[in-house]
């Protein structure tokens, strides 16, 4: 509790109620956070984004002494949650985990929200896609797979996420880089990476372009293998998986990332404090151990760099989605 008297509280509450929003930030800023903070997650409980958000929330809660409540606002391919973050009051008491979809959805015409609709706070994670195939299938390495696709366009089917999702785009980008059209490997929409990996094992599809950690369980179970990752360098957690550049000479990389942001127009001091706290959380051993255990990549970028990162991502998504025929305009 602060040193304000109870009467003072009631008075200021009444003032806030009558004078609308004017009085609120003034009180809120006095000692942020002095009440529970909501962390909105646009994806469901149980997924990687949810897990990452929950560990970050747990660390922030421990360090700041106020509850950080993770609230799942799911559905609409991420639109619902992202819009809940953007439309919340910018008082520092509602923040959220934004994901790569924020640079994609508005090109598809699903929403008007884009990276600039937020106050960026920090980038915390990025995972590049891999190319996974059935363990006992015909493909031994990425070169052989690439040759097969070139010789038999339309024959193989791929999956990993919904139509127009990040992993779909990863596939299209890779095909384009090889000089092929998007329909050389038709996309089978799925409810995420896990069902796609299972369908791969069941023989329903031929390749899955999800991130390697998402495919890890099936790979460990001996049902699937990863032929390459679409990143600048190898993942230290999966050192045996080569990059596209070293095998095919293709320098194409795209990744799914997660960061923390608030609604546009957050007070600068609260935003700065949050970024500092997020840095502390990022450097903590709890966070590092957790991300390592799940095989998730860790990347740090403070607010301004995060904003640049999103702007760049947004521009490259625009052209990638246009060439894949996924952009609306």
């Amino acid at each position: 509790m602060t040193d304000l008297t109870r009467r003072g509280f009631v008075a200021s509450a009444a003032a806030a109620a009558s004078a609308g929003l004017i009085a609120k930030p003034a009180i809120a800023q006095s000692a942020w956070p002095n009440r529970p903070v909501t962390l909105v997650v646009p994806w469901g409980a149980g997924g990687g984004t949810d897990a990452t958000a929950r560990i970050v929330a747990a660390i922030l809660e421990k360090n700041l002494g106020q509850p950080f409540n993770v609230v799942n606002r799911t559905g609409g391919s991420g639109v619902v949650g992202h819009s809940a973050i953007a439309t919340a009051a910018p008082d520092g008491y509602t923040i959220g985990m934004v994901t790569v979809e924020i640079t994609m959805m508005h090109h598809q015409g699903l929403t008007d929200l884009k990276p600039t609709s937020y106050t960026p706070l920090a980038l915390m994670n990025e995972d590049p896609p891999g190319v996974q195939v059935k363990a006992d299938g015909q493909f031994k390495d990425i070169k052989q797979l690439a040759e097969f696709i070139k010789a038999n366009p339309g024959k193989l089917k791929a999956s990993g996420t919904g139509q127009g999702g990040i992993w779909h785009l990863a596939l299209v980008g890779w095909l384009n880089a090889m000089g092929l059209k998007a329909d050389a490997v038709p996309w089978v929409p799925s409810n995420g990476a896990a069902p796609a990996m299972q369908d791969l094992a069941a023989g329903g599809i031929d390749l899955v372009t999800c991130s390697v950690p998402e495919g890890k369980a099936m790979i460990d179970a001996g049902k699937a293998k990863s032929l390459a990752i679409m990143a600048a360098q190898r993942n230290p957690l999966f050192p045996d998986v080569p990059t596209l550049n070293e095998t095919l000479g293709i320098n194409y990389s795209v990744g799914a990332w997660r960061g923390i942001a608030g609604p546009k127009g957050m007070p600068a001091d609260i935003a700065a404090k949050l970024t500092a706290e997020l840095k502390k959380a990022y450097d903590s051993s709890e966070f590092k151990d957790f991300m390592k255990a799940r095989g998730f990549g860790t990347v740090w970028a403070p607010a301004n760099e995060f904003a640049d990162f999103m702007a760049k991502g947004d521009a490259s998504m625009a052209s990638a989605m246009k060439s894949a025929g996924l952009a609306k305009s």
Binding site: G44, A45, G46, G47, G48, A51, A194, M197, Q198, A201, K216, A217, M218, D220, A221, K223, F290, A293, R294, G295
Partner: peptide
């Protein structure tokens, strides 16, 4: 296999990873 049989086990898998019991 680390494939969730339902939404509960989807979360359980996450916990298993966290505790270094990779499914």
């Amino acid at each position: 296999f680390g494939i969730p049989g339902d939404s509960i086990t989807a979360i359980v898998i996450g916990v298993l990873y966290m505790k270094n019991m990779n499914p």
